[in-house]
């Protein structure tokens, strides 16, 4: 591999130059470097400013809202009717809707993702693994609006066929949850598989030597050893599910509804934010401020889960020599 060595600079033969000219050139090079270092530092600051911006905007825009509605009422109120009188600002129906879809997505992605990870890491021959793993990861690259379409036009009719179209509303939490589970499955399987592959061969060999079957090695040796990675992958995937917008907007409905029945229509927090953005809401009105209050809650929830996931990965990772 050839490297473009610095032809115009340090490496060229400078033997004919006078010492003070070398010195001047050297000085210019260091000046150039300090300017560049400065510019680079500024670009690195942009990502820090982004975080500050997000927190600041969410807090500042919600302050107006929370001066009229108490935080307690917001997080414990069971009615959410910001668009018609009497206005009620209890976010529990939105939180419940979000969590209902996320739990369904979590169940689907954990079952499929963990199964796939065990298959890829413990059972699949290298050739099969090399084909199946990239195919599975295509799922993570498909735009969410496409998943929304898939939920609405493919999964929902199937559910209506199974449970009867009287029982299944067109927009329902189950359809959105199943499809979202499919979307985050590669995340669970990739991160879990990484954790399983990190378990040393010798532990498996020891179990096999005692006469264990592959299933016993997987469930009694590999999974316990890789548990922190698996749990973390699951938490990170759930955080993705909570923040996901288009699938719930398209397929789960726009009815703030505190329910445990997945066949009913609900409204997720993200779907509410998008719904208000599409309507004609005056800048500065309390309806406008609600989307920032809901956004703040969403940000805090996902941030907490992301940090928890990362802490589990770094704190509880088994280190094998």
């Amino acid at each position: 591999m050839s490297t473009n060595s610095g032809s115009n600079t340090a490496s060229s033969s400078d033997s004919r130059l006078l010492p003070d000219e070398v010195l001047r050139r050297r000085r210019r090079q260091y000046l150039e470097q300090s300017i560049v270092a400065w510019l680079l530092r500024v670009t690195a600051l942009i990502s820090v400013l982004t975080t500050i911006g997000i927190v600041l905007i969410l807090v500042v825009e919600s302050v107006g809202f929370f001066s009229q509605v108490s935080v307690w009422e917001f997080v414990t109120g069971r009615e959410w009717t910001p668009l018609f009188k009497p206005q009620k600002f209890g976010a529990l129906p939105l939180i419940g809707g979000t969590l209902l879809v996320a739990v369904i997505a979590g169940l689907v992605s954990l079952t499929l993702g963990l199964g796939a990870a065990i298959f890829l890491s413990e059972y699949a021959p290298e050739g099969v693994r090399k084909i199946l793993k990239p195919v599975l990861e295509i799922l993570a690259g498909i735009p969410t609006v496409v998943y929304g379409y898939f939920a609405l036009t493919f999964i929902t009719p199937i559910l209506q066929g199974m449970f009867g179209s009287d029982n299944v509303i067109i927009f329902n939490a189950l359809s959105a949850g199943i499809v979202m589970g499919l979307m985050i499955m590669p995340m669970v399987s990739t991160l879990s598989e990484d954790a399983m592959i990190a378990v040393p061969r010798s532990l498996r060999d020891a179990a096999y030597a005692l006469g264990a079957t592959r299933f016993e090695v997987s469930t009694k040796v590999v999974i316990p050893a890789a548990l922190s990675g698996i749990v973390a992958s699951f938490i990170l995937a759930l955080s993705r599910a909570i923040g996901e917008t288009m699938i719930v907007k398209i397929a789960a409905g726009a009815t703030p509804n505190l329910t445990l029945n997945p066949l009913e229509s609900i409204q997720a927090m993200t779907a509410y934010i998008v719904q208000i953005s599409l309507g004609e809401t005056a800048h500065g009105s309390i309806e406008y401020q609600t989307i920032f209050a809901v956004g703040l809650l969403l940000f805090v929830m996902t941030l907490a889960m992301n940090i928890l996931g990362r802490v589990i990965i770094s704190r509880f990772r088994q280190v094998y020599e």
Binding site: A44, S47, V48, T50, T51, G53, I54, I57, L58, E61, L236, S239, R240, I242, G243, E244, T245, T270, I273, V274, S277, I291, F292, G295, L298, F299, T302, L303, N306, I307, R310
Partner: peptide, 24 residues
């Protein structure tokens, strides 16, 4: 801190970026 911040930003839901863009 900057690196931690970047990996946290990668996990922020896209709809939040929309709110940031709308306001800023």
């Amino acid at each position: 801190l900057i690196e931690l911040n970047i990996s946290n930003l990668a996990g922020v839901p896209s709809v939040i970026y929309g709110l940031l863009g709308l306001a800023v």
